[in-house]
Design a binder for these strands. Structure first.
Lengths: 243, 243
DNA sequence: TCGCAGACTTGACCCAGGACAAGGGCGGAG
DNA sequence: CTCCGCCCTTGTCCTGGGTCAAGTCTGCGA
């Protein structure tokens, strides 16, 4: 629950961060980067299972994942939990809190992780000075909407098998963007969490993993998952929808 | 397909628009409002069934619905159509296009409608000058994310009956916010469109309307729908979820 | 090293919602 | 006013994924 805090003595900086081509600083020059660095001083470690923020917490800072993996979930009026995303390195958390000033989601680390905190009010101040940063911030907000639409598409139109295939391809692609091996995925989330995210039960997720394995599209070693036939998976997605 | 265009001779202005407490100009003073008015000169009529923009079109302008109703849908890799929203007056369309510079969705008017076009590049320029406008714009972007999460929640956790009840309550609430009678909804979309949006087939939507009617929660006259027992509907939502 | 708890797999059965089919009603064109 | 087409409703049957129930695997702590 509590969170370790190891300030700027570990001279982490956006300018030297390997994620600067994915995260907030895309397209900034050296001077602009420095001003952003001034803002993003505080890093936090969040250990596996710990919570970074909870629904209802006032929005102080956006958080960019530096290393690790999170899940974001919300509780519905009927008390149901729904995972709305699995942010990984370079992705911002807390964007949906701007509208009300309070977090709507709960952020829990799925493995030992590190985040960069970006005080939101100060960020808005900086945006007015740095048009490129402003534009990048808008692109990230807009991208979050597009990501959500992709999930809506999956939930609304796809069969169980397709959902799982699309989920694995998505994780694989995101690994690829970060220069990691896209065909080897160490899933930090349980079958139940995957099912919750995709609108399926954990048993169904498990069955679909088995089914994909039987078709030689993937291989599994516990949570470690290998993409064996990326094109086959993609082809499956292109027809694997409800009527 | 083509779109009538009736420029500023109909002296529409944000400053005198009845939606200024919902739309982009929230919280602006008179001078700021004037600068926004300068930007938002062009209004367009879009007749029922016409398209305002299509997936792939370059983002020129965001569009705020002034009157009427739209549907936004995207086409999945498998060719499936998925409606991601039904924007009504005061709501912005095209926010998801900022990330790539091209629209992802298709916007079609569900009834004769009117939109205000907001040239996006010029808007970003103005945001740097007007902190309050900047903040409101961020709130709208963030609110769009929150809205999408609400849809994900509905799609991921709810039964057919709950989905339809939640849909009607949502429309009703949005009417209420605009000062219209929240208990009388003239649905501009077909059962099929509702079903597509909620991840249901049209027959199921129809059945759920009948079921809600049998419980005296709503009344229907064709597409005109009356909320008879708002609390009952809400109570239903609070327990009407998958196990 | 062993034992245990939590996570995963697999099987058998069931049910909410989909598929298919047959009307019924309503609004626009002539 | 009438006709036609589209949308909506309702019935019947079917199926994908949920539910329930055994196991099996794995990693961790003693």
């Amino acid at each position: 629950m509590s969170v370790t805090n190891f300030e700027a003595n570990l001279k982490h900086r956006c300018s030297s961060c390997s994620l600067r081509e994915i995260c907030l600083p895309v397209g900034l020059d050296a001077e602009e980067m420095t001003r952003l660095d001034d803002l993003v001083k505080r890093r936090r470690r969040v250990f596996s299972g710990q919570s970074l923020f909870r629904a209802g917490d006032p929005l102080q800072a956006l958080a960019a994942v530096r290393t690790g993996f999170f899940k974001i979930y919300e509780i519905s009026v009927s008390g149901q939990e729904q995972i709305t995303g699995f942010p990984m390195s370079g992705e911002l958390m807390g964007l949906d809190a701007i509208s009300t000033g309070a977090h709507r989601g709960n952020a829990v680390a799925l493995e030992d992780s590190e985040v960069c905190e970006i005080p939101f009010t100060r960020l808005e101040g900086l945006l007015a000075d740095l048009p490129r940063l402003q534009h990048q911030f808008h692109k990230l907000l807009s991208g979050a909407i597009a990501t959500d639409h992709a999930l809506v598409m999956i939930l609304g139109t796809m069969t169980a098998e397709f959902k799982v295939a699309a989920f694995l391809l998505n994780l694989s692609d995101r690994r690829g963007q970060r220069g990691e091996d896209p065909s080897e995925i160490l899933l930090p989330m349980s079958r139940e969490e995957i099912g919750n995210y995709l609108g399926l039960k954990l048993e169904t997720v498990s069955r679909m993993f088995s089914k994909l394995r039987d078709q030689n599209l993937i291989a599994t070693e516990g949570r470690k998952t290998f993409i064996r036939d990326r094109e086959g998976l993609r082809a499956l997605c292109q027809q694997g929808s409800d009527t």
